[in-house]
Design a protein around this nucleic acid. Structure first.
Length: 677
RNA sequence: CCGAGGGUAGCUCAGCGGUUAGAGCCGGGGACUCAUAAUCCCUUGGUCGUGGGUUCGAUCCCCACCCCUCGGACCA
């Protein structure tokens, strides 16, 4: 009784078109691709759609700084992204872009319907404006002194020193991070989506299984209060779609980004907005969005609200995954663990990463860790030692000594083969529920059984006395290998294709698990994949230390990354020498418990005595690392009273903050109290 | 501080009310030699974060506490 074929539309989140794809992104695309390939293997109808999120201020500014038109810039990114995905076997039915005529038409359609439904409201808001660049500045593009702790050079939305959140208009001495100019406060009329209109439907949706329970719990929090209106407009100049009937107003790129899923659908269907809408409305169509936990808000609230408001059904399911950490820590450019997709592919087999991610992935939104040690172990012992080895040990004997012809499986193998075939439904269920870690566990357990069977039967000895018996054993071993490869096909499609070629069989589907390949001539064995060598990983990481340009901005949609810090206005030698910088030795350091960032540091400044400095470096180093080392600090900075004491100076460091703070050093022979000239 | 998730062998995790708590990897000892890539057998190793409670019985349920991770009002 074959179940009715499902009709599924699957998306991965649209990567932001201002940077390269990195291995953090790949968690999602590989996860989605595995799921899609599995559904196809089962015979279901699947459309897998994606594309670039190509609009917004960061892209506009980036293109400008490179001296090209935004269209040209995003076209190049699109090409790069496609190449990166192809390297990892991530295969879309359509990889499109939000900057497309289909998307524009759909965007207007959504807007008109939301407007007609009375869900769009207007309000004046005050924002900073860069008079040199003539643009309104997103919060992250404004820097200034924190209104709370007075730390200099903080972002417009929150302070990295004291952790306080505020509005950019609260900053002291704000500056545009783009031009360095002093921004002006300007008022502007913005458009909002009135989310409260959809409250009941959204709650029902979330409680009805749109997301798994862990995510649903999180979402419930947001319903504790009134849902805020969502600001969907941006002022000119902006790279995006103009709002119809309005002068100098554009749609915020997060409005047109999810609509981009439909645009890709339209493109794939070779039609327009109406065709996409018609397809979306098919009764049996299931819509699955694979997303990172950082964009739950957009996909669980805004997007369903937009769909409902436009008369379309909300998604069936949001598959939320966690973020990637490397060796237990966030990817970091300074640690050299920020690895781009293309860079990985230059050094290591992309099938390995697919396999490794599979062993770590489940339906949980918890972060997943890539530990290189674990990566080596799993790939070498499981993928190579257990799985590939099974075929590699059986096929060559058959080819060399028995004309490459399989026979009838030996009766001794029947229990093993039954177990292999009976695992089918459980593995299918694990795949369907995105529990790929369980899938690989089961597959490895089966591989262990098969290897044990081969070991016991010792066909390499048997062949000397009874060729047909040996043929029966090898036939069974290859049959096991074939079934394993079907199970593994969604995860390592390239390797599975090699096996199909070697076994001389047509591309296998899930149904072939129950078939057999008795009395059949196989092809000479070709190697499937190699072992991971430690030095290759080292070579990849080494490259990162020198090639800083490879570490492009993480392309998380709508999170603008800071541009380089603008050069401060010219200063005179007098002004420079007004700053008294000294060498100091840290004699004591302790983290301040009540804060995330502050460390209390006592500095021996030689003749100047001792100073206590409260520095925002708690995340970057430990008291142990700090104690005893020499630092450079500003000794004549006015003492600053802070919540946890008075800070009598400032330790010099570079880096963006958080974990990436790099203290200035001085050669060992320097002594505390010496002035820096 | 508030919220969510989690703390099970050196590592990565499974188990989630019921016989002496499991797997893989790593470590140790054998065997084998078909495997460009090895495998097989044996084996060391755990008061299941801590302290209470419910129960005939708890890793699993309840309470408190500790620790880790991730979120937290206008970026949404």
């Amino acid at each position: 009784m074959a179940a009715a074929k499902r009709n599924i539309l699957v998306t991965s989140a649209l990567p932001y078109a201002n940077g390269a794809i990195h291995i953090g992104h790949l968690v999602e695309y590989i996860q989605t691709d595995i799921w899609v390939r599995f559904q196809r293997l089962m015979g279901n109808r699947v459309l897998y759609l994606c594309g670039d999120d190509a609009h917004g201020t960061p892209i506009m500014l980036r293109a400008r700084s490179e001296g090209v038109a935004p269209e040209q810039f995003i076209a190049r990114m699109n090409q790069e992204h496609r190449e990166d995905f192809a390297r990892f076997g991530v295969k879309f039915d359509c990889y499109y872009s939000t900057h497309s005529p289909e998307n524009e038409a759909l965007c207007y359609l959504f807007y008109e319907r939301l407007k007609a439904g009375g869900h769009i409201v207007h309000r004046d808001i005050e924002q900073f404006f860069d008079p040199v660049e003539n643009i309104f500045l997103p919060d992250r593009f404004i820097r200034g002194q924190c209104p709370n702790c007075k730390a200099p050079d903080q972002y417009g939305d929150s302070c990295e020193v004291c952790g306080k959140h505020y509005s950019p208009t609260d900053l002291i001495n704000p500056k545009s991070a783009v031009s360095g100019a002093v921004p002006e406060r300007r008022s502007s009329r913005h458009f909002f989506l009135h989310l409260e209109d959809f409250r009941d439907q959204l709650l029902e949706l979330i409680r009805g299984g749109l997301v798994d329970s862990a995510v649903a719990n999180k979402l419930e929090e947001w319903f504790g209060k009134e849902l805020k209106d969502w600001d969907i407009s941006r002022d000119a100049p902006f790279f995006g779609f103009p709002i119809p009937g309005e002068a100098n107003k554009y749609f915020y790129n997060w409005l047109d980004a999810p609509i981009g899923y439909l645009a890709a659908l339209a493109k794939n269907l070779g039609g327009g907005a109406a065709d996409a809408e018609e397809y979306w409305k098919l009764d049996d169509l299931e819509v699955y969005h694979f997303i990172g936990k950082d964009i739950i808000y957009f996909h669980a609230l805004f997007w369903p609200a937009m769909l409902i408001g436009a008369g379309l059904k909300p998604p069936t399911k949001l598959c939320v995954h966690g973020h990637l950490t490397i060796n237990g820590e966030k990817m970091s450019k300074s640690r050299g663990t920020f690895i781009n997709a293309a860079q990985y592919a230059r050094h290591l087999d992309t099938q390995w990463l697919r396999y490794y991610f599979a062993t770590r992935l489940s339906a949980s939104p918890a972060d997943i860790d890539l530990s290189f040690e674990d990566f080596c172990n799993r790939v070498n012992s499981e993928l190579v030692g257990k799985l590939a080895n099974l075929i590699s040990r059986a096929a060559p004997i058959l080819t060399r000594l028995l004309d490459g012809r399989t026979g009838i499986v030996t009766v001794d193998a029947l229990p093993v083969l039954n177990e292999f075939r009976n695992a089918e439904s459980q593995i299918a269920m694990d795949y369907d529920q995105r529990n790929f870690a369980a899938v690989t566990r089961r597959i490895c357990a089966l591989a262990d059984k098969a290897n044990k069977f081969v070991e016991e039967q010792a066909p390499w000895s048997l062949v000397k006395t009874d060729e047909e018996a040996a043929r029966g054993v090898l036939t069974a071993a290859l049959e096991c290998g074939r079934i394993l490869m079907i199970y593994l096909k969604p995860i390592v499609p390239e390797m599975a294709a090699h096996v199909e070629k070697c076994l001389n069989i047509r591309p296998q589907t899930w149904r072939d698990i129950q078939n057999s390949m008795e009395s059949h001539v196989i092809n000479p064995f070709e190697h499937l994949t190699g072992r991971v060598e430690e030095r290759k990983i080292q070579a990849m990481l080494e490259e990162n230390k020198t090639d800083t340009t490879a570490a492009a901005a993480p392309g998380v949609p709508a999170t603008p990354t800071a541009t380089e810090e603008p050069l401060a206005p010219e200063c005179s030698i007098e002004q420079f020498s007004a700053v008294d910088l000294r060498v100091g030795r840290v004699i004591h350091a302790e983290a301040i418990e009540a804060t995330d960032k502050l460390m209390k540091v006592e500095i021996d400044a030689g003749p100047l005595g001792k100073r206590t400095v409260l520095a925002g470096i708690k995340k970057a180093c430990t008291p142990e690392e700090l104690t005893g080392r020499l630092v450079i600090f500003c000794a004549n900075l006015a003492p600053r009273k802070m919540k946890f004491g008075t800070s009598e100076g400032m330790i010099l460091a570079s880096g963006p903050g958080g974990k990436d703070v790099f203290l200035l050093s001085v050669d060992q022979r320097a002594t505390p109290g010496q002035r820096v000239h």
